[in-house]
Simulated assay, not measured.
Amino acid sequence: MPSDVLTRFFERLKFIRWAKIYPPDVPSNDPDRFLRCQDALHLEFAALVDRAVAAGWRADEVLTTIIELADNHALMLAARPSSKKSRLALQPQP
Rank of each mutant, 00 (worst) to 15 (best):
A55Y: 14
L48I: 09
R51N: 15
D32P: 00
I67L: 13
R80K: 08
A52Q: 15
R33T: 01
S83A: 15
Q91T: 09
D30F: 01
R87F: 04
P92F: 06
D60N: 13
R17F: 05
D71L: 11
E61G: 08
A59I: 13
M1D: 09
W18C: 13
K14H: 00
L35C: 01
P81C: 10
D60S: 09
Q38M: 03
V62A: 13
F15M: 09
W18N: 15
P27R: 01
R8Y: 01
E11S: 04
L6V: 11
S82E: 14
A52E: 15
E11R: 07
R58E: 15
S28V: 07
K85G: 11
E44I: 07
S82N: 11
A74T: 10
R58A: 12
L6D: 06
E44V: 10
P92W: 01
P92H: 02
D60W: 00
A59K: 15
L63Y: 09
V26S: 06
R33A: 08
K85S: 12
F9H: 07
C37H: 09
S3H: 06
L48D: 14
Y22I: 13
L35W: 07
R51S: 14
A19N: 09
F10S: 06
L43W: 03
R12D: 03
A74L: 11
I21W: 09
R8Q: 07
D32Q: 07
V49F: 12
Q93G: 09
Q93P: 05
V53Q: 11
F9T: 12
R87A: 08
V5W: 05
P23V: 03
R12C: 01
M76K: 06
K14G: 00
F9R: 13
I16G: 05
M1A: 04
T7R: 00
A79E: 02
R33P: 00
D30C: 01
Q38R: 10
E44R: 07
P94I: 02
P92M: 04
D4P: 10
F15L: 09
S3I: 10
S3N: 06
A74Y: 07
A46F: 09
R8F: 00
V53D: 13
F34D: 13
R8G: 08
A19C: 09
C37W: 10
W57I: 12
P24V: 02
E61M: 08
